[in-house]
Design a protein around this nucleic acid. Structure first.
Length: 295
DNA sequence: TGCAGTGTTGCTTC
DNA sequence: CGAAGCAACACTGC
């Protein structure tokens, strides 16, 4: 489930490997992954174009094309972008053929759900894999991309992400803080894993109403958000469930998670058993001793 | 065996 | 209007 650090990891990979390459051809193994444009029109616009840039906004990833159009990818839960040589052919069912020689990440069962393939200059390819068919790809012009991106709240690593901003908006929300910080129109890029980790670091119970947070807690929340997201980006994301980078490699942040998916295990600070509850329908993990609900 | 859990977003309902 | 709930899908684990 790529959140901000995972999508940022993909972005860095693509900047290195894909930017500057020309799209030679496109193949859809499951056409439903393309939204809003017919395959014919898509091919017409995209094939032959050079990829001139890579952008991330919230959990969206986009490739800027020559001519001012953009390919917008959303991974949702199980989407993966895989960059490899185009000698790794597929058999028409979305599965990779066996290939002699070096070990390939494409043997990973998670990468057996290829929905679309971009053939790139230099005999490379970028494959879009997605088990659950929630992920999508859209072709947008500059204005549409801007509109799409404008729906999101501030990026944590932007100048707008201040304690003032957060405190003001939290004051208006008589809702569980966890729901508020996962609202993409309030903060861009935080999902279930990092929400739990950040609240733990800030010693805030996930059910605490956002408008009960003190100014100091909000300041601390902001700092922990930046620290945790930065650390997660440095470690190339969390692969507790299924995230893989564009080479099929796992991220390392999962090894240092404090609460997420640690139900029943001891809190790293005081040994209390981590508890799991449901908040807004999502699994939520916290230390009942360190994180108390504020009345 | 069957059904809850998984997690993101957007649509529907209240 | 804001918030809650659920559907979209496919697989895993109990």
């Amino acid at each position: 489930m790529p959140e901000l650090p995972e999508v940022e990891t993909i972005k860095k990979d693509l900047e290195k490997n894909v930017r500057g390459r020309q799209i030679i051809g496109v193949e859809f193994l499951w056409p439903g992954i393309l939204q809003g444009t017919s395959i014919a029109a898509f091919e017409q616009t995209v094939v032959g174009k050079k990829i001139t840039g890579v952008l991330r906004r919230a959990k969206n990833l986009s490739l800027e094309l020559e001519g001012g159009n953009y390919l917008l990818f959303h991974m949702k839960m199980t989407g993966h972008l895989i960059f490899t040589d185009d000698s790794w052919q597929v058999d028409g069912t979305g599965k990779w053929e066996k290939h002699d020689g070096t070990e390939s990440p494409l043997y990973d069962p998670l990468n057996q759900y290829i929905r679309a393939i971009f053939y790139l200059s230099g005999d490379k390819m970028l494959a879009f894999s997605d088990l659950r068919k929630f992920a999508y790809l859209k072709l947008l012009d500059g204005n549409s991309l801007k509109d799409t991106y404008s729906k999101y709240g501030p990026e944590p690593f932007s100048a707008e992400f201040t304690a003032d901003y957060l405190f003001t908006i939290f004051q208006k929300k008589n809702l569980a803080i966890k729901k508020v910080i996962m609202d993409q129109s309030i903060i861009a890029g935080i999902g279930n894993i990092y929400a739990d980790e950040i609240l733990y670091a800030t010693k805030i119970h996930p059910l605490t109403k956002a408008n009960r947070l003190s100014r100091d807690e909000v300041t601390s929340f902001r700092k922990n958000t930046l620290d945790i997201l930065k650390k997660a980006i440095d470690l190339r994301g969390t692969s507790t469930s299924d995230f893989r980078d564009t080479k099929g490699k796992k991220g390392e942040f999962g090894n240092i998670l404090a609460v997420y998916r640690r139900t029943g295990l001891p809190c790293l600070k005081d040994g209390t058993k981590i508890e799991r509850i449901s908040v807004g329908g999502r699994g939520t993990h916290f230390c009942p001793k360190e994180q108390r609900i504020k009345e």
